Simulated assay, not measured.
Amino acid sequence: MITGERVRMRALEPSDAETLWRWHNDPEVMRWMSDGYPPSLAHLTKELSERAADTFGDLTLIIETLEGRTIGIVALREAEPEVGDARLDIYLGEKDTWGKGYATEAMRLICRYGFGQMRLHRITLTAVAQNTAARRVYEKVGFVEEGRMREAFRRDGVWHDKVVMGLLEGELR
């Protein structure tokens, strides 16, 4: 378990299926994410029950408040020890927690874990350019825009750019 001042992060459990299912079926939560088709609760429960243990290459954690309320999910994926690189994904599914610093703390904790425990040198992520709230969080912890993928995300019939952002070891704020 990774613990900060306001949040802690723990492994996914089959009991998290209903919460994840609720988030995946909330259009406001999924607004800027590539969500595909919402999974059924049965499918999600089965997937979490049969999920392989986290590895160096793929680590996915639930974000909770210190009081134990599940509020989001964070992952370091596609980690490659040979090059010290990983891709980060994060979202808060509980809308009443948005804008209150939980995502910022979770980002700092997972990046600190990635650089320290996983011996990463670089963490990257992509964000839809119009998702200004998420980009503000990423910039607050030290991520910088490194590139742009033009019209790489479609929502409501409109194409949006995605920005590629990166954080190097030693740049975490």
Rank of each mutant, 00 (worst) to 15 (best):
L66W: 06
I123H: 03
G93D: 02
I71N: 07
W159R: 12
T60C: 03
A152P: 09
A127W: 02
W98Y: 02
E64D: 15
S49K: 15
I90S: 11
G99W: 00
A129K: 15
V164P: 03
D58S: 14
A79M: 03
V137W: 07
D156N: 11
Y138A: 02
R119H: 14
I90V: 13
A127P: 06
D54W: 00
E82R: 08
L88M: 14
A79R: 11
F115T: 00
R148F: 07
G68P: 09
W159H: 12
I63Y: 03
R155E: 04
F56D: 09
G57T: 15
D58C: 12
D156P: 00
F115W: 08
G142N: 13
E105S: 07
Y138Q: 07
I90C: 08
A129C: 03
V158F: 04
P81R: 14
R154P: 03
A52I: 01
K95H: 10
V74E: 05
A134H: 04
G114V: 03
E105P: 06
Y102A: 05
F56T: 02
Y102F: 14
K140S: 10
K140R: 13
R154H: 13
R150L: 14
V83T: 11
A106W: 12
V158T: 12
T132E: 15
E145D: 12
L61C: 05
E80D: 15
A134T: 11
R51Y: 04
V128W: 06
R155K: 15
I123C: 13
V141Q: 05
E50N: 09
T124V: 12
E139C: 11
L92G: 03
V163Q: 00
V158E: 11
F143E: 00
T97V: 06
Y113C: 11
G93S: 04
A152T: 05
A134R: 07
D89Y: 15
D96V: 02
T132Y: 09
R148M: 10
K100T: 04
R150I: 07
T60G: 01
E145I: 12
F143C: 01
V74I: 13
R135I: 15
A106L: 14
I63G: 02
V141Y: 05
M118N: 05
G116P: 01
A152G: 01
R150Q: 10
D85L: 14
R122P: 08
E145L: 07
E151D: 09
R135Q: 05
T97A: 03
E146S: 05
G142I: 14
D96Q: 00
G68Y: 09
T104I: 06
Y113Q: 04
I90N: 02
Q117G: 07
Y113D: 12
